[in-house]
């Protein structure tokens, strides 16, 4: 459960200060599949960083599973990322020259999980992300773009996070492979009840989510659930 309230984020200070977020509030329940959409410079990346505990807001509160993470220091944020958040990035997602299995196990290594346990959980995640066991011992640079993204999804799931955060996960993929990856997210959401937040600037991609939050100029301009979304909604 994510509750963010009046989040602002200002970069720099004085004359050069730039306010990326001007008071963003929304709530995401467990099991939701939300797309945060907006053009570049809209503040969606900043939102993503704050949601992913990579950055803290200048003001406002962020409750993750009831815990206020908006005032935590670096070390505490690292713990939150380790335990509660799974990331899928646009590019440079996996460690090069490292096996698929070890890539997926990496968060568990940092969490100090034992060897047998982490292999079991990594295998489970990889299968859930639609990877077949024949690929487990492949090096990450021997995989196709779609496979890489699914390994990244498996890694994001392996620590059983409260939130899977995907930042333009299809940005480097062709449409067909992108569909497969998005299908994987949908499946994880529907069948496993995973909370997924998708950051994208493409409306087509956002359509795959059940709910679309549109951000522009540091403010939420629309927040539409799938049921209400009969016609694509564009705020001025």
């Amino acid at each position: 459960m994510i509750e963010i309230k009046d989040i602002t984020k200002t970069y720099g200070s004085g004359d050069t200060a730039f306010q990326a977020l001007k008071g963003v509030s929304f709530t995401i329940d467990d099991g939701e599949f939300v797309a945060i959409m907006g053009p570049s410079g809209s503040g969606k990346s900043t939102t993503m960083h704050i949601l992913g505990c990579l950055d803290t807001p200048t003001s406002g509160t962020y409750l993750l599973d009831g815990k206020d993470v908006s005032t935590m220091d670096d070390e505490e944020l690292a713990d939150i990322r380790k335990d509660k958040i799974g990331f899928v990035f646009q590019s440079f997602n996996l460690l090069p020259r490292t096996t698929v299995l070890r890539n997926v196990m990496l968060p568990l290594i940092y969490a100090g999980v034992g060897e047998e346990e982490r292999e079991r959980r990594a295998t489970e995640s990889l299968l859930a992300a639609g990877l077949s066991e024949t690929h487990f011992m492949h090096k990450s640079n021997e995989l196709s773009g779609g496979q890489i993204q699914r390994v990244a999804i498996a890694r994001a799931l392996v620590n059983d996070p409260s939130l899977v955060l995907a930042d333009e996960p299809t940005g480097n993929l062709d449409t067909k492979t992108g569909e497969i990856v998005l299908g994987t997210f949908q499946k994880l959401n529907q069948e496993h009840g995973r909370t997924i937040v998708l950051i994208t600037h493409e409306p087509d991609i956002a359509q795959h989510a059940k709910r679309i939050i549109t951000v522009r100029d540091g403010l939420v301009v629309s927040d539409i659930n799938h049921n209400q979304r009969i016609a694509p909604h564009h705020d001025a």
Binding site: G52, L54, E75, A78, D79, R81, K82, D83, G86, F87, F89, F92, N93, L95, L106, P107, Y110, A111, R155, N159
Partner: peptide, 8 residues
């Protein structure tokens, strides 16, 4: 990347 997935 390592930091994002929980490395301190």
């Amino acid at each position: 990347l390592r930091k994002a997935i929980g490395a301190k």
